[in-house]
Amino acid sequence: MNTILTGTKNETFKIISKKKFIFLFSISILITIAASVINLLADRNLGAPLLNNTHLPITVLDFMSSLILPLFVLMLTSDLFSGEYSDNSIVMTLVRPITRNKLYISKILAIGISILGLLLGTFIISLAASLLGGNLSDCMDKLPSNFISYVSSVMPMLLIAIITAFAAQFTKNGSLTVVIMIMASVLMSAASLFIPELANFAPTTYLSWHRNFYSELNLPVITNEFLYMLAYGIIFMFAGTYLFAKKDIS
């Protein structure tokens, strides 16, 4: 357990030291500030805001979950696996007192922690922005559900990370892993257009899982989607860990 904690600490440090992470965090702050400023300007010049300020945190989360966060998770995961294979930096950790299984788990945990940190940071900033132009009591009423929505969106992102880590075991090139994952996602979306039943089985369907927490909780739907993600997570985690442990570093 101690080794997993050490591994997670190290991998998290690697992630937050990356320019990509700092860049993404800056982007999410900019998006929030820009949305808030546009809303204020619209309110002053057009007489009404474009969107209710109380909904600002949710609007930002929707935007981030649909595009920026998945892309970020793809890049981050491929960097931590394929990227480290290609620049040989993985050797530095593999020859330390940590088994490959524990290292794999540490990397996934570190990605989860980084996504959670990024989301919580964005939540605080978007909440502050919504308080500036919105009604205080409305914002406070929405606070618990908004917070749960932000935290819950870690789950589908972590699933993407687990699937990407599995795909990364077949390549030694970070960019190739990202391309493979985007192609797979496009193919799944295209297939579900022709066969709508497939949509339930596509992991990308659950990217909007956080929306279940906006208003009234529909427990059967939440549980059902959670179990789908859990099942996918377990399958790809086991397969990825197995491949990682058996891989020869040449």
């Binding site: 030291s17 050797v91 530095m92 020859v95």
Partner: peptide, 12 residues
């Protein structure tokens, strides 16, 4: 150990 090429993280 030091095997083949030095292994370190360039950005750190």
């Amino acid at each position: 150990c030091l095997i083949e090429t030095p292994s370190a993280i360039g950005s750190l």
